Amino acid sequence: MPDLDAAYPRPEHIAPAEWAARVELAAAYRIFAHLGWEELIYNHLSLRVPGEPGHFLLNPFGLHYTEVCASNLVKVDGDGRTIGDSHWPINPAGFTFHGAIHRTVADAHCVMHVHTTPTMAVCCLEGGLSYTNFYAAQLYGKVAYHDFEGITVHADEGARILASAGAPDHCKPVLLLRNHGPVVIGQTLAQAFNLLWVLQRACEVQVASQPLGPLRAIPTPVLEGCVRDSLNFNTHFGAGQDSFDAMRRVVDRIDPSYRG
């Protein structure tokens, strides 16, 4: 594979750490499109800017995920105000809770929100996520719920979403917005991606198995062991960086233009 860093050099006006974060986040948008997790121009993945407290990167509102690249990501402050120049706005519904989470939760370096069919289906179930399959078992004790209040464009809902998640001291990394969709919070982008991937698979299996009959329960000690042993988001095992890197290589082979 050619030297992609050389093919897509960093603009001189952007610091190296910020550019690396931009490239990583743009890669995530392309990975989501590759996996079919995009939603037209909607939904949001946000990432803190390294070394710039209170500044975050977010997708330009109006672009499909396959059009997002490092240079057109929008830098905003904690209230969603654009920092520097941008030809694009951001989705006002996108930063209502993203901003609140980033501002309040110290480890919330990356926040992701999607509307995939299986995750939304589980968010619409009265019982929510069922800890009855291999993937769901890894999320035991990590999931909180927030009741549906409509489209998330009202700033005051951010505080209620935080309270539902248990922030700031006991914030769950997976928040299921009832009747809406999931939000995941990662200490790194790779960890957030893996949380979402495991949640997606858990919901796919639940939606497929529920119509077949009663779901077989998993004993609590076994669930606790699955959480302890999971490689997907445990920082001791790299928090899923290897699997994110593998998917990044996939999109590099398809179209590396996200790096520009």
Rank of each mutant, 00 (worst) to 15 (best):
P2H: 05
Y8V: 07
R10E: 09
A15T: 13
W19Q: 07
L25V: 11
Y29R: 11
F32L: 13
G36S: 13
E38C: 15
L40R: 15
I41A: 13
Y42D: 02
P53F: 10
P53L: 11
P53G: 10
L58C: 11
Y65C: 08
Y65M: 11
E67C: 05
C69H: 10
T82Y: 12
I83E: 01
I83M: 14
I83N: 06
G84V: 09
G84Q: 01
N91S: 15
N91P: 03
A93I: 10
F95A: 10
F97S: 14
H98M: 13
H98K: 06
I101H: 00
H115N: 03
T119R: 05
T119I: 03
T119K: 02
C124G: 06
C124E: 04
G127R: 08
G128S: 01
L129P: 00
S130L: 13
Y131D: 04
N133T: 02
F134G: 01
Y135R: 05
G141V: 07
D147G: 10
E149V: 15
D156C: 10
D156G: 08
E157H: 12
A163R: 12
P168E: 06
H170S: 12
L176H: 00
L177Q: 02
H180T: 14
H180Y: 14
P182E: 05
P182M: 14
I185D: 00
L189H: 02
A192N: 10
L195G: 08
L196C: 06
V198Q: 05
Q200F: 07
A202R: 04
E204H: 03
S209I: 08
Q210M: 11
P211K: 03
P214A: 10
P219C: 14
V222A: 15
L223K: 12
R228D: 15
D229S: 15
L231S: 11
T235H: 13
H236R: 11
G240Y: 01
Q241T: 09
S243V: 13
R249Y: 08
P256L: 08
P256T: 03
Y258K: 09
G260V: 06
